[in-house]
Computed example of a mutant assay.
Amino acid sequence: MNAITDWLGGLSGPLVYAVVGALVFAVDALFFGFVLPGETAVVLGGVLANQGQVSVYWLALTVVLAAIAGDTVGYSVGRHFDPKILTIRPLRRHE
């Protein structure tokens, strides 16, 4: 965990916002939550905000907007592909 924090800490402020926002978006829209929880990215961003490397207000705004956008994209993908996804063999029993 320390290596990830050091890596994020080495990035400039806008890149930290972009990385944290992208991870939150990916968790909500692309179901990456199985691999990396979005909350972890937010907590790491909070650590950097506590260290004064980024603004907690801009970080919070980034996280909220990324979560809203990710949920919207995830809903749209599910709505569009729902009938087709449920016909895939491993998912038929969940129909």
Results as ranks from 00 to 15, higher is better:
residue 20 V to E: 01
residue 20 V to R: 02
residue 22 A to M: 08
residue 22 A to L: 13
residue 22 A to G: 11
residue 23 L to P: 03
residue 23 L to A: 09
residue 24 V to R: 02
residue 25 F to Q: 02
residue 25 F to P: 08
residue 25 F to T: 07
residue 26 A to G: 00
residue 27 V to M: 06
residue 27 V to D: 02
residue 27 V to L: 04
residue 27 V to R: 09
residue 28 D to P: 08
residue 28 D to Y: 13
residue 28 D to H: 10
residue 28 D to W: 09
residue 29 A to L: 08
residue 29 A to Q: 08
residue 30 L to A: 13
residue 30 L to N: 12
residue 31 F to L: 08
residue 31 F to C: 07
residue 32 F to P: 07
residue 32 F to Q: 10
residue 33 G to W: 05
residue 35 V to C: 02
residue 35 V to H: 00
residue 35 V to S: 02
residue 35 V to P: 03
residue 35 V to I: 05
residue 36 L to V: 15
residue 36 L to M: 14
residue 37 P to K: 06
residue 37 P to G: 14
residue 37 P to V: 09
residue 37 P to N: 04
residue 37 P to L: 10
residue 37 P to I: 04
residue 37 P to Q: 12
residue 38 G to E: 01
residue 38 G to R: 00
residue 39 E to I: 08
residue 40 T to C: 07
residue 40 T to F: 03
residue 40 T to N: 00
residue 41 A to C: 12
residue 41 A to T: 10
residue 44 L to G: 05
residue 44 L to N: 06
residue 44 L to P: 11
residue 44 L to S: 11
residue 46 G to C: 02
residue 46 G to M: 00
residue 46 G to W: 03
residue 47 V to Y: 07
residue 47 V to S: 04
residue 48 L to G: 07
residue 48 L to H: 03
residue 49 A to H: 07
residue 50 N to G: 13
residue 50 N to P: 04
residue 52 G to S: 10
residue 52 G to W: 03
residue 52 G to Q: 08
residue 52 G to T: 10
residue 52 G to R: 11
residue 53 Q to V: 13
residue 53 Q to S: 11
residue 53 Q to H: 14
residue 54 V to Q: 05
residue 54 V to M: 01
residue 55 S to L: 11
residue 55 S to I: 12
residue 56 V to E: 02
residue 57 Y to M: 15
residue 57 Y to C: 04
residue 57 Y to P: 08
residue 57 Y to F: 15
residue 57 Y to I: 14
residue 58 W to N: 10
residue 59 L to E: 03
residue 59 L to N: 10
residue 60 A to H: 10
residue 61 L to P: 05
residue 63 V to S: 06
residue 64 V to S: 12
residue 65 L to E: 01
residue 65 L to S: 12
residue 66 A to Y: 02
residue 66 A to L: 04
residue 67 A to E: 02
residue 67 A to N: 00
residue 67 A to F: 01
residue 67 A to Y: 00
residue 68 I to H: 05
residue 68 I to T: 05
residue 68 I to A: 13
residue 68 I to Q: 12
residue 69 A to K: 04
residue 69 A to L: 14
residue 70 G to Y: 07
residue 70 G to M: 01
residue 71 D to N: 13
residue 71 D to Y: 03
residue 72 T to V: 08
residue 72 T to W: 11
residue 72 T to F: 06
residue 73 V to Y: 07
residue 73 V to F: 09
residue 74 G to F: 06
residue 74 G to Y: 11
residue 75 Y to L: 04
residue 75 Y to E: 06
residue 75 Y to W: 12
residue 78 G to S: 13
residue 79 R to C: 02
residue 79 R to M: 05
residue 79 R to N: 08
residue 79 R to K: 13
residue 80 H to E: 07
residue 80 H to D: 00
residue 80 H to A: 03
residue 81 F to L: 15
residue 81 F to I: 14
residue 81 F to C: 12
residue 82 D to G: 14
residue 82 D to P: 04
residue 83 P to L: 05
residue 84 K to H: 13
residue 84 K to Y: 12
residue 84 K to E: 02
residue 84 K to L: 13
residue 85 I to E: 03
